[in-house]
């Protein structure tokens, strides 16, 4: 049942020009960053030979591209998730789901997994560029994989927050703006933290970027992966609760 809703969600997303425009623009911007990084690597390559353990092409190219994409998607994910629940409420199509033999959890998970399918396509397309380097050089696939999974985990966390905000309002525009501010605030906490004196451990833990950077550097630690999963699960539970309350209070 979750898959039925998710497939429907992906299909409807792909029917709207918005999804294609987003895919194209993200790909274009990621490509610019990619070319830029490759060029920088080429320029610096002779000097790198002097180091004992020089950073490889994966560090020079893959990490910056993924970091860039993550920041761009901070702004774009709210646009992807804005419609998912608020438009169902606005267009009164929610009652189709509500009168079907499907639980609230299945509805929310279906919507969420549908968004994840879309993100998989996006991350997959972005990964093609670094993979193309394999024609000319050897690539640290472990680092690439770590970076890609880190990116995906982070986007998955973003989308859960976006989905929750989308359940709060009937207006997709309000949903997009509110989700953006929520994500941006969580992101900024990293900068607060790096301002010199140590802030409290809670803020340090909450900040999204804090957990993303190590993944980019190729180290997948349970601590960081668990953070993103907890983040997503928390917002999904909020969303289910929110829909339950709506059914109770109307």
């Amino acid at each position: 049942m979750i898959h039925a809703i998710a497939a429907h969600e992906l299909r409807r997303m792909m029917l709207s020009p918005l999804a294609w425009v987003i895919l194209a623009l993200i790909q274009f911007l990621a490509a610019l960053q990619f070319l830029n990084s490759v060029e920088e690597f080429m320029l610096n390559q002779p000097r790198l030979l002097n180091y004992e353990n020089p950073p490889g092409v994966s560090d020079w190219v893959v990490a910056p591209v993924f970091a860039d994409v993550a920041f761009m998607l901070l702004m774009v994910i709210p646009i992807i998730t804005m419609r998912s629940l608020s438009a169902e409420h606005r267009d009164k199509t929610m009652s189709l789901l509500l009168s079907s033999p499907v639980s609230m959890t299945e509805i929310v998970l279906g919507k969420y997994v549908g968004t994840l399918y879309f993100l998989l396509i996006m991350v997959g397309m972005i990964c093609i560029m670094p993979l193309s380097l394999m024609f000319g050089t050897s690539l640290d696939t472990g680092k690439l994989l770590a970076g890609a999974s880190g990116l995906f985990l982070m986007l998955a966390a973003f989308s859960a927050a976006g989905l929750f905000i989308s359940s709060m309002t009937n207006s997709p525009a309000v949903s997009a703006v509110a989700s953006f501010f929520l994500l941006f605030a969580l992101w900024l906490m990293f900068w607060l933290n790096s301002g010199g004196q140590k802030l409290s451990g809670v803020i340090e833990y909450i900040s999204l970027l804090n957990h993303f950077v190590p993944l980019l550097q190729g180290s997948i630690s349970t601590n960081n992966a668990v953070y993103f999963i907890l983040f997503a699960v928390t917002f999904l539970v909020f969303t289910v609760r929110r829909l339950d309350i709506q059914r109770l209070q109307g």
Binding site: A4, I5, R12, D91, T93, S100, P101
Partner: peptide, 26 residues
């Protein structure tokens, strides 16, 4: 259930929509 406003997705064809409804109803 048919609510006051039919819960249809305007961007789907009739067949696509009804197939989705059939799947939702198991």
């Amino acid at each position: 259930y048919l609510p006051e406003q039919p819960p249809v997705y305007r961007d789907l064809t009739v067949d696509e929509y009804l197939r989705y409804c059939a799947r939702l109803h198991g």
